[in-house]
Design a protein around this nucleic acid. Sequence first.
DNA 1: CCTGTTTATAGTCACAGTGACTATTAAAGG
DNA 2: CCTTTAATAGTCACTGTGACTATAAACAGG
Lengths: 246, 246
Amino acid sequence: MSGTAGPGYDPYAFEPFAVTVDLAVFTVRGGALHVLLIRRGQEPYAGAWALPGGFVLPRESAETAARRELAEETGLPEQVVAALHLEQLRTYSEPDRDPRMRVVSVAFTALVPDLPEPAAEGGGDAAQARWLPLGQAPDLAFDHAEILADARIRIRSKLEYTCLATAFCPPEFTLGELLSVYETVWDTVLDRPNFRRKVLTTPGFVEPVPGAARLTGGRGKPAALYRAGPATALHPPLLRPEGPTR
Amino acid sequence: MSGTAGPGYDPYAFEPFAVTVDLAVFTVRGGALHVLLIRRGQEPYAGAWALPGGFVLPRESAETAARRELAEETGLPEQVVAALHLEQLRTYSEPDRDPRMRVVSVAFTALVPDLPEPAAEGGGDAAQARWLPLGQAPDLAFDHAEILADARIRIRSKLEYTCLATAFCPPEFTLGELLSVYETVWDTVLDRPNFRRKVLTTPGFVEPVPGAARLTGGRGKPAALYRAGPATALHPPLLRPEGPTR
DNA sequence: CCTGTTTATAGTCACAGTGACTATTAAAGG
DNA sequence: CCTTTAATAGTCACTGTGACTATAAACAGG
């Protein structure tokens, strides 16, 4: 122990902690929810998969550190990282969660549209960064499996009462793409006309792209293009069929 | 490390941070939402009001620290603190939020039933601990005003889609008491029969106290007693009249 | 060129949940 | 007693949703 803080506890004799950030970055690709993982290049857990993240620097907030780490460790374009929807999940502070030392980690959740495979930059902290589908996620380092599970629960729930699903879509998208985001994240099948009605009657959820642009080239009838509207909350919510837990 | 990252950044040369917890503890008393505040006995901000909280000890998780600090700094009975509904709000990590040093604080929200005025224990960190109504909350130390505002938004929102309101009530309560919790936290007036219908038709929200116990002594017709049921979520939610923001 | 497949879009109908409202019951207090 | 207060019971119309049918516009393949 630090020799200072005994049972006669002095508030100034605080224990120094390391503070890190961890990121659960999700995307929807090919009908499956994917998470961005890196393969660790060093001990502990060298060779294991982990969430991207790292230490918070002396003059950074946790959110600033999260964006910096994401840019450093993954090949995500600068522009994408800066505009990313980033949200605090929670802070993980169990005393033995890192074998090296006392580390408290602020976890974040981020959603991005489907992107090309990230290229870890030459000397990055991570040997590799890859999108892996949640169904076949490997064992993760530290308590990252718990963080990832918590993040997944959170985003599944947030699709219900926020407009967050559009964060998984490119700037312009069809209602069919938005529908498949919901179906993928919730792992359900939704009724297409009902989904359409709900989205279109919620003010500010999506707005049509001017010029009556339509997306063709796919198999069926060309779909109208929309972009995300100004609304952030969904009232009333768009509840998933099974209820809130799953 | 791998000689890459920016200005010679070495992930092992981490900055030591102090880690603290801060608590926004709410109760409903006399038709007003109250928060538990302490008057600081030492610098910085000596004499100012602040949220209860303190440093996380070497072998504690943040949640353990939160319960310990609450017991130490306030007169809340041991039993109450142990059973408290405690929930992480978020972590505040702006570099200059504490003038002394780099402090990252994990904020928690807690709800308790109306209790007698807490008595700060003799040697506690705080000179005083008092319940103050949110309407007349004084200026707070550090960024505690921001934390308190965030906590208030959170609980107002959580009443909509969780059964959390019962945490403000004693073990046995009437539907009128539960109604006034909602009306106080949301600062609205709700229709009594409709509220009753909603609560009673939501499975597991409340369950009647066996023996047909009734509470009399008040002015009107005696009310049936209920206790909190096993449900935690409210589906469909109980939306407040004005919408989600306010 | 026709036909089947696929996806988008339009519309209908019944039902559940809710807001607004009225009525009745059971206590306390002058 | 009669009034006041609060609890409880019930009604009615409207909104949003789930389930379902129908039509339109593209492509694929013979």
